[in-house]
Amino acid sequence: MTPVLDVRNLSTQFMTRRGVLKAVDDVSFTVGQREIVGLVGESGSGKSITGFSILGLVDPPGRVVSGQILFNGQDLLKMPPAAMRTIRGKRIAMIFQDPMMTLNPVLSVGTQMIETVQAHDRVSHTEARQRSRDALGLVGIPSPEERLDSYPHQFSGGMRQRVAIAIALLHRPDLIIADEPTTALDVTIQSQILFEIKRLATEFGMALIWISHDLGVVAALADRVMVMYAGRIVEAGQVDGVLTEPRHPYTSGLLSAIPAAVPRGEPLRPIPGFAPSPLSRPSGCAFRDRCVRATEICSTEPALEIAAGREFRCFHPHVERAA
């Protein structure tokens, strides 16, 4: 089965006054049909920029400099802007992090939904409104007919995120990119939204890229997980494997920094230091300055190792428990 999305050697850079900032550096991955992939990393690791690169929404001075983004076999990077616009929102939809900011405050929710329908399908206003109402109902917004005439500030954060999800669902896209959509929400609302998205993705057979810094959320949701560090994917594999038996020291570092994962009374073990500035990344493994296992060889670039459905870039991986 061909993957929905096949990203090959994607590099996105920002030409800033202080130099070239490699936000995404030679990233490759695939997303299969109906697959839910978690993309995990710290702030600034390049996970959001990866999402924006796929949709062609990287703002200047940022630019995708090389690579291929094959969506159903078509290279999105070679597509003219007009054609790209017909993909955006129609075949690939995106949900943003902060629901307070993603809806236009001066336009009614109905207007913002109807315009999305009419941007891609030549349908009457009445029909577009009907589809919008159905989409609102689908994501669990009570009395959707009246809510269409409401404005964003009349909704709570969770409800606004539901509206954003409804907008993403309007055209039943093949792929949804969700950029930390639950980060700004209360925990209870978070789990509701998670549940809804998972249900809808399964129901409509959509693939999902879930960008998050929260390993717990990804564990609950995703089939596969990719860990990003300093613009690169350092480890990828099935969720169960990666989160229970991490190979890359960064992944294990992330896991032991989660409060709930550490037995009560034992100190948390934060990863020492900070992520390197994207303007001056060390050569070789970018994690080596913070890594207890680092040696001389880490100043050269570790190759991507593929073993048993697991990919990682490390000279000193944790050994598999079975081995």
């Binding site: 929102g89 943003f96 336009l107 907008i167």
Partner: peptide
Amino acid sequence: DFVKFARAKGLSENRIVFVHVFK
């Protein structure tokens, strides 16, 4: 964000400038 979101919805640039931004 809402301008970027409008782009992600696939709206035309005209619609974004003259409706979303202008209002």
